[in-house]
């Protein structure tokens, strides 16, 4: 296995090149495609506006709930974003070819990078809206928690996205898997932004990234063989 991969790497473009090509292609889908920001960002905006309506008008209540609300919206938005894992390939009908060409680890890396970017944009949009509409606050620790927490979410989401890449069924099931898998990010991401002492929460997020990354890497190849 390792020999085969080493042999392939001599003839093929470098890992970074492959990742860059894949990321560029998927980023275009995220920016312009129906599975990308076109559906997710309006959803997050609607979530923040409706939360202001039902949780208001007490500004203190809005301020308290804002960070957790943003994370909950990001995790919910992650469910449709998981379609990005194979969106470009579905359009071109090239998923089978791609997983034959690119080693699983490289594919996982590329797809997770795209999802991380998409999730980061979603979180930033949600946070910006929460600051504008719900009187929320942005802290350095909160942003660091988003950077760290979304790594683990993106890794798990890539696995779940690949799980559904070849099947039209089970979109609702994805939500049942993604929300629990994102629980550490939801909890620690929310708390790190508001706690006096953010370090333990950031440490929890690093631990989460470590476990989610390693597990995703371990099971991802099995989801690619069809």
């Amino acid at each position: 296995m390792s020999g085969r991969r080493a042999g392939l790497q001599v003839r093929r473009p470098g890992t970074l090149r492959t990742v860059a090509v894949l990321v560029r292609r998927d980023a275009r889908i995220a920016l312009g495609g129906v599975d990308g920001f076109a559906s997710v960002l309006p959803f997050v905006a609607a979530g923040v506006v409706l939360a202001g309506l039902v949780l208001g008008p007490d500004p203190a209540a809005l301020r308290t709930t804002a960070p957790g609300l943003v994370w909950l919206l990001v995790l919910t938005a992650a469910v449709p974003l998981a379609r990005l894992v194979a969106a470009a390939e579905r359009d071109e009908d090239s998923w089978d070819m791609l997983r034959g060409l690119v080693p699983p680890g490289v594919l996982l890396l590329a797809k997770a990078v795209v999802l991380w970017g998409a999730l980061a944009v979603t979180w930033s949009t949600g946070t910006l809206l929460a600051v504008l509409l719900l009187d929320g606050a942005v802290t350095v620790a909160g942003c660091a928690a988003a950077v760290l927490g979304l790594v683990g979410v993106a890794a798990s989401l890539t696995v779940f996205g690949a799980l559904l890449a070849a099947s039209a069924r089970g979109a609702g099931l994805l939500a049942a898997l993604v929300l629990p898998a994102g629980l550490p990010a939801l909890l620690a991401g929310t708390q790190a932004g508001v706690a006096d002492e953010p370090w333990p929460w950031l440490a929890l997020l690093v631990a989460y990234d470590l476990v989610a990354g390693a597990t995703s890497w371990a099971v991802f190849p099995f989801l690619l063989e069809e």
Binding site: W199, P200, A203, L204, V206, A207, Y208, L210, V211, G213, A214, T215, W217, A218
Partner: peptide, 16 residues
């Protein structure tokens, strides 16, 4: 690798 990552995470949580 997974067991190592879980162990590392537990150690990290222990000192955090």
């Amino acid at each position: 690798v997974v067991v190592g990552a879980v162990g590392g995470a537990l150690a990290l949580l222990g000192v955090s």
